[in-house]
Design a protein around this nucleic acid. Structure first.
Lengths: 138, 138
DNA sequence: TTAAAGGTTCAAGTCGACTTGAGGTCAAGC
DNA sequence: GCTTGACCTCAAGTCGACTTGAACCTTTAA
């Protein structure tokens, strides 16, 4: 076997992504084998970079369809505007989680006999609720 | 109708949670109506606090089953140890998202002609990939 | 030569958190 | 007496991202 190309198993091993998932990505148009030998897919070694980018996108909260849109077919490039937008979204999420984390930490230490009676925790609950009700109104 | 209790519609309005979701929560053992009038569910007004707590838990990344475990049946109380643990998990998630956000921000501004050539972005990709491969090995 | 390892396709199943649809009940107001 | 609106139950559908299973092929090593 030419050392140029990788089997699906090898790609799976290197990327940590199951072979079935790789076939699924192909079906979705996210990756493409460089060719076939007999029926077997052969991948260009650089596919692992593309896969890392896909994984990154997922962790940043993109759906596979989102990712398919910003990934150029040829290379591996992203739209700068979209990146900025997504960074801002992430930032908001970070803020939310931080409030949450602090609230939980407080609740764990708080001396109020019941969380229901802890003002800090109550405030956290009210924020949560207000957002939910607002969200429901659109 | 006694002003004491709330219909499912009223609870839905106040909490921002669909009636169908409320029935689903009941099925999962997360909430319980105080009683029924004819067949109709009647809720104690405090149910909205419990619902806010459920929503909070969800936003913190708990599944409904997780939440059911920590919510006491009677009141609305949480296990302090679990709270601490979850706060730590949140903290880790915050770290991850922060790395991601900074990476995306950098990539958006970076002058390298292609993201593939930007060292910072490459580093981000390598981290992502390493974690994935590790995760696949258990 | 035969078995194991690794690949193929295609259809169907899984998970969590709900939503939707069909068909029925009940009280209020015209 | 009839419609309207809010509620009921129960079963089935939805979404995204995969996984699993069945049935088959191909290469390689013992």
């Amino acid at each position: 076997m030419s050392t140029e190309f990788l089997s699906i198993g090898e790609v799976s091993k290197r990327s940590g992504i199951a072979a079935s998932a790789l076939r699924y990505y192909e079906e979705k148009g996210l990756i493409e084998p460089a060719g076939r030998q007999a029926q077997k897919r052969l991948y260009h070694p650089t596919v692992t970079e593309r896969l890392a980018l896909i994984t990154l996108g997922q962790q940043a909260g993109f759906s596979l369809d989102d990712i398919a849109e910003v990934l150029t077919t040829t290379g591996f490039e992203l739209d700068r505007e979209q990146l900025t937008e997504k960074a801002a979204e992430l930032d908001k999420q970070i803020q939310r989680l931080t409030v949450m984390r602090d609230g939980l930490q407080h609740a764990a230490k708080c001396q109020a006999p019941r969380h229901a009676e802890c003002p800090t925790f109550q405030k956290l609950l009210r924020i949560t609720q207000r957002k939910k009700v607002q969200a429901a109104q659109n």
